[in-house]
Write a protein that binds this DNA or RNA. Structure first.
Lengths: 228, 228
DNA sequence: ACAAAAGTGTTGTTCCTACACCCATGA
DNA sequence: TCATGGGTGTAGGAACAACACTTTTGT
């Protein structure tokens, strides 16, 4: 059943950059293509936008297909539409990036993807289409935003130690941070809730914290500025 | 001559939010619609993306149609695709925002627009479609970015006085800024070139400056951070 | 001389940075 | 008691904020 229009239309797809933190490594979920074009190369999860589907909904749909996870943080990244970016025709792709907590959530292997894997950002293979460019933009956006908005907590488990939070920023920003000054800065913001202590560790147990979203939003109303 | 596809496709349009600074007022270029839907309401300039046209190129095309100006700063803002945002069907709009210098450039009245006008952001009429939402997002982006990237200069004439620069930030951010501290901060960045003086003003003539883009890019390479 | 806007000196406070040190736990 | 990572004290300097003051022009 064909669809006919008076003027030509491009196809519209959604691609999702899914970031996860594993120890000291930032990883991204990629899928090895089983068909041409770009057969065997790695690509971002994505697909066509359904008729009358919201774009963000499409992003959530792709995310859930690949990871089984719901309620994940996603944010629109950028829309790519350069002619020739897809050899099959004029394809416009709205890219979203997602931040997922690999510790708490079980990632199911996707049903329809032959080979989906978490790959380190520092050890990336060749990517299909313009997906390298898209991924680079996502990394740039993550680096830029993580300092001014409390995005980082999305990558951490519900309860985390100060050192984990610091490690996260060091990984994402690619810099070393002074422990003392980092704690002082975060503490002054008063956006963390104490959540008990670590147990069974071979050193002084760390106090665990969670991000206090209500308090953060309260502070935002009165001109507070998150900044690392 | 109809175009036929195997699966349904949304239409893709580009809308442009064109900001200009006039004295102490931030203005936006809007067009009064002459046809349904939303006849007589004001709307952002925009139109369909041509086959195999780059998105940013489409934005520049719309911008030039309405203002006659070339080489203007544009940046992709966000892509809007909520079902129902256009009563005529599934229309996905990629929004761009542009910053234009109203002092230097002659804005020609658009040929195809019945009524294009620069309207103050503080005195906006009802807008067509979801254009209010799009405009709000553009303002938010402008406010957020102007502090961390040297966007503001795009709104000023080539040569400007310190007080104009300060006025710009006061207008965009909606705050008062201390003259002394503002000067000190900007001067420390060393990103301005002296360009002579005002003449024929009934007070001490201000030194004129231009934004030194080369120097700025030089500084950026060595970890410099623009911040107001 | 006066109005008007340009431009400067200075001071108290807050924040940033760097470095050294102490603490609690399991092995 | 030792290794390991958690957590704190503090001091010097840079950046911020506030306010009063001087300078240069046209009328």
């Amino acid at each position: 059943m064909p669809y006919t229009y008076k003027y030509p239309r491009p196809s519209v797809t959604v691609d999702v950059i899914i970031f996860g933190l594993k120890g000291k490594d930032l990883k991204v979920l990629l899928i090895q293509r089983s068909n041409d074009p770009f057969k065997d190369l790695w690509a971002l999860p994505g697909g066509f936008v359904d008729p009358d589907e919201e774009l963000e909904e499409a992003a959530h749909r792709e995310l859930e297909e690949e990871t089984g996870a719901k309620g994940i943080f996603v944010e629109q990244l950028y829309t790519f539409g350069k002619p020739g970016r897809d050899p099959r025709g004029h394809v416009i792709s709205v890219a979203y990036f997602a931040l997922i907590n690999l510790a708490d959530i079980k990632i199911k292997p996707a049903s329809d993807a032959k080979d989906a894997q978490w790959l380190k950002l520092t050890e990336l293979p060749k990517l299909a289409f313009d997906h390298k460019e898209i991924l680079d933009k996502a990394i740039e956006r993550l680096r830029g935003k993580v300092r001014y908005q409390p995005l980082g907590f999305e990558l951490l488990p519900e309860k985390f130690a100060f050192s984990q939070l610091q490690q996260l920023y060091e990984t994402v920003l690619g810099v070393e941070i002074n422990k003392r000054n980092f704690r002082t800065k975060i503490n002054k913001m008063k956006i963390l809730k104490e959540e008990g202590q670590q147990t069974e560790v071979a050193h002084r147990p760390a106090v665990l914290y969670s991000f206090d979203k209500d308090k953060y939003e309260e502070l935002m109303k009165s001109g507070f500025n998150f900044e690392i």
